[in-house]
Structure formats: structure tokens, C-alpha cells
Amino acid sequence: MIRRTRIALLAVGLAMASPTALAQDQAAEGIAQYRDMLEDDNPADLWELRGAELWKTPGGPKGASLEKCNLGLGPGIVKGAYVRLPRYFADTGKVQDLESRLITCMMTLQGRSFEEATKQHFGSGSEKKSNMEALVTWIAAESRGMKIQVSTTHPKEKDAYEVGKQIFFFHGGPHDFACSTCHSQDGRRIRLQDLPNLTTPEGARKGFGTWPAYRVSQGEVRTMQHRLYDCFRQQRFPEPRYASDAITALTMYLAVSANGGEFAAPAIKR
């Protein structure tokens, strides 16, 4: 049925569009079809399975698993945790996103050092798999279909949101780019890629609510953490440190803007 509607739409497009617009429609159409085909069979499933295993596997100098890790809803509770992060944690006195919180658990429960907890934080092929990205994929998947509901009631949560908002609009570097340069208007594209307007609830839900995602072009599952890292690279900014406060604050701004939306990750993207 969906396919038939598409063909009808394509026919209308054929009749009306200029040759360039047509070529673009066809390209976008092809990408959409490809995505649909893959949606039922998302390779992110492999990351998810590995993450679920890693959660239960004893490790680190203390030989403990992460099963007692408190992601905000109590020790060991994973379902619904992701759609309430970042949040304030009293034991660290900080607002933490999922990665930052997992690092805390790896350090306190497993006795790992920060360096060990964050080594290979982004995956790179089968030789350099990232345990962190597998864990994040699984934990995020456990919130799939739930409403995003990130709190700003604690003063430090409110601060993180406000700081993140300022970072979003911060122009810098040789190109003068800010996040808002590409992500504050509706219906814009970079090359053929649609850009969500992250200043609106709809756009923020589209942006925040679909990471982690399997990136077809990279053959990797990428997280929100990686998405922001790569945006700053393209903004010509210096390198953001992994799980740093700036990344957490910016994630907070996006997550709160996405509140009320349905969490639809792990997704599949170009």
C-alpha cells in the first residue's frame, strides 16, 4: 500500500517537477525506500545484543558487572532510563548523560579508571569495536516507543539546559558556524541531507529521538554523543572531550526541547 502511494506520488512528481527537482526527488525517494527496506532488519540489533551481554558481564579490577548501575530510576533499572537522561545525580553532584553515567558506574562498581572506561569510546570497524556504543544502543533501545521526559526541576538541570542553549547558538571558529547556522530553520538541506530545525519541538524530536542510529555510510552505530562530536568537527571547532560537560549540556538542551516526543531509536540513517 505504501509502495503504491509512493509510485502515485512519483508520477505526480514526474508531471510537475523540473528535471533537477526530479532527479533530487528520485534520489530522496531511493534513500527513503532503502531506509524502509532496512528498518525491519536494522544492523543496530547486533550492537543491542552485544550491549545486553556486556551489562551482565563481570569486568574491571573488581570483577563486577554493571547490573547494579543506577541510571536514575534505581540500581539495575534500564527500561525508561534513556528517555529521562540527562539528569542530576546526587552521588556525583552532576548532571550526567548516559555515557557519563556509565563511566561513573564503570569506575565505582567495576573499579576501572576513567581512561580505561573511555578507551575505544567510538567504534571503528570489527577490529575496534566500542563496548560503550553497544551498551548505549541497548540501553536506548530499552526506551524505544516511550515519551521523552527529561526534567529541568533540579537547579543544576536547569543550569545545564541554559548552558546548552547558549552553546547551541555560540558562533566561533574560522567559519563562524554555530549549531544554529544549520539547525534553526525549517525545510533546509545540506547537500541532499534534510536538516532538522532543532529549535522547534518537532525538529528536536526528529533529531534527538532517532539517535543512536546505524549509519549505513559508516557501517557503525553512532550515538548522540558521536553526532555532536562530528557536528563540532564540521563546525571547525576544537575537539570536544568525550562525555564532557559541554556535550552533556547541549544534549540536555536538545532532549528538553524534544520532550513529549516518542523515542524512536535505534534508527537507521544514511
Binding site: V163, I167, F170, F232, P238, E239, R241, S244, D245, A246
Partner: peptide
């Protein structure tokens, strides 16, 4: 506050 957070969160590369 944002500038302070950014200076602590980014590194030269």
C-alpha cells in the same frame, strides 16, 4: 557560564 564550560570541555587537536 557556557564559555567556561566549553573551555574546559574542548581540547586542541
Amino acid at each position: 557560564a557556557a564559555l567556561e564550560v566549553m573551555k574546559a570541555s574542548f581540547q586542541a587537536r
